[in-house]
């Protein structure tokens, strides 16, 4: 489903990704782990289409189509979703207004008819109940005054409503207590399907106890340096990233 080939990316003359290769198959949950500064968040931003990064080489294919020439909105309409590590606060834009605008923009881009208001509200209510998002939160400005856990739940709520094909979770576990981690993980697990793939980016193995991956990739100095099954995450938890830093230094 997603193929990244020899991706080289820099920001302000700082090379962050150095020929990164990664394949995530349809229905697969792939985890990327790695130390701070290895380029994990850059990878998620580059896939989503943030403008600050300069792609020097390589390609990113979503179902065979190179998405690097597409704007972030076009990528979203093509089925890509990034759950932000730090979801932004947008005062004055009510969450409901935002959700409806996002869903209908994507439907419009795909040539589908817009959702009717009752249909939209029904879907939001169903998703909000599952993720334990109170209704009054949806009426307030997007993420304004939300706790870290509430913001992450709002990200997963958006993911559930937008029904993407490929989801990137960028350190979704950061700033979450155990209860929030459980709610968020259950939300993600409920969305797992043979047609939907996930790229789960995290520092810690803990998240992967809740969202059990099919594959684990270790990232260091802007490259995938080791790939394996879910047991690789446990190994990393026991030994740390020291082994891979040496590769970096070498």
């Amino acid at each position: 489903m997603l193929q990244i080939k020899n991706l080289v990316v820099q920001i302000e003359d700082n090379r962050i990704l150095n020929g990164l290769n990664l394949t995530v198959n349809k229905g697969e949950v792939a985890a990327i782990m790695g130390p701070n500064g290895s380029g994990k968040s850059t990878l998620s931003y580059v896939i989503a289409g943030k403008a600050d990064y300069e792609v020097l080489d390589g390609e990113i294919l979503l179902d065979g189509q190179n998405i690097l020439e597409m704007g972030p909105d076009e990528r979203a309409a093509a089925g890509l979703f990034l759950a932000f590590q730090y979801p932004l606060e947008i005062p004055g834009v009510a969450s409901m207004t935002f959700l409806k605008a996002a869903i209908n923009a994507q439907r419009k881009a795909r040539g589908e008819i817009e959702l009717t208001t009752p249909d939209f509200i029904r879907r939001v209510n169903a998703a909000a109940t599952k993720l334990e998002v109170p209704k009054d939160m949806l009426k307030r400005g997007l993420n304004v005054g939300f706790s870290g856990g509430e913001k992450k739940r709002m990200e997963i709520l958006q993911m559930a409503l937008l029904e993407p094909r490929f989801c990137i979770l960028d350190e979704t576990d950061s700033g979450l207590d155990i209860d929030a981690l459980r709610i968020v993980s259950e939300g993600v697990n409920a969305l797992r399907s043979p047609d939907r793939s996930f790229l789960v980016i995290t520092h810690y193995q803990r998240l992967l106890n809740y969202i059990v991956p099919d594959s684990v990739h270790v990232m260091s100095a802007g490259r995938i340096v080791k790939s394996g099954g879910k047991e690789l995450a446990l190994e990393l938890e026991a030994n740390g990233y020291a082994d891979y830093r040496e590769i970096e230094a070498a």
Binding site: P72, D73, R75, F81, F98, A101, L162
Partner: peptide
């Protein structure tokens, strides 16, 4: 970027802001 990453075209994202 946040709004566009959710599918809103640039002009629509600007309009909302």
């Amino acid at each position: 970027f946040y709004l566009m990453a959710r599918g809103l075209p640039r002009m629509e994202a600007e309009r909302l802001l």
